[in-house]
Amino acid sequence: MTIEKKSRRKFLKDGLWGTCLTCLAVVAGAFAFKKRDDEKVWQLDPNKCVACGNCATYCVLEESAVKCVHAYAMCGYCDLCTGFFEPEPRELDTGAENQLCPTGAIKRSFIEDPYYEYTIDEPLCIGCGKCVEGCVAFGNGSLFLQVRHDRCLNCNECSIAAACPSQAFKRVSADEPYLIKKAGHT
């Protein structure tokens, strides 16, 4: 009696074991063949970005993986750059009290009258988006934020994405990991 009982239990157990293994194999196989996809990475859509400043504070890294990029082809090279200067600057010079950037990461250099070029000193940029906000509001919107993939840890759930008010963060293919602003598009 006991032997029979034991063997029945063993039979059921083995059956269940086989079923589980087959299920796992089928799931793995189905995914490997049908829904195979590239690795995904996080990126923010600059056209949806509202420059709220969450990128600087919500990233799990102490210094955010998001930094500013300048699309020079879109830039108006203004003397009064609203991405560089405080709303009402006392003077149009590189004095710290006139600058919008809290870390002074934007370099202003004279090109020709009346044009100035603005370049970003990336190690200083913290991704706060203050310059982006100014540039989008009153300028051409040539300054925008992007996730730097040498810094990004590619968390399973991006902390900035969870905090992004305009749902600008999305998973993009690792083969094309940047969403660069181009002239002629907003």
């Binding site: 690795e39 300048h70 370049t119 730097r148 993939h149 040498d150 590619n154 940047y178 660069i180």
Partner: peptide
Amino acid sequence: LPSTDYITNITP
């Protein structure tokens, strides 16, 4: 004009 393409060389 400086190019913005440098950023695409920073790959994941």
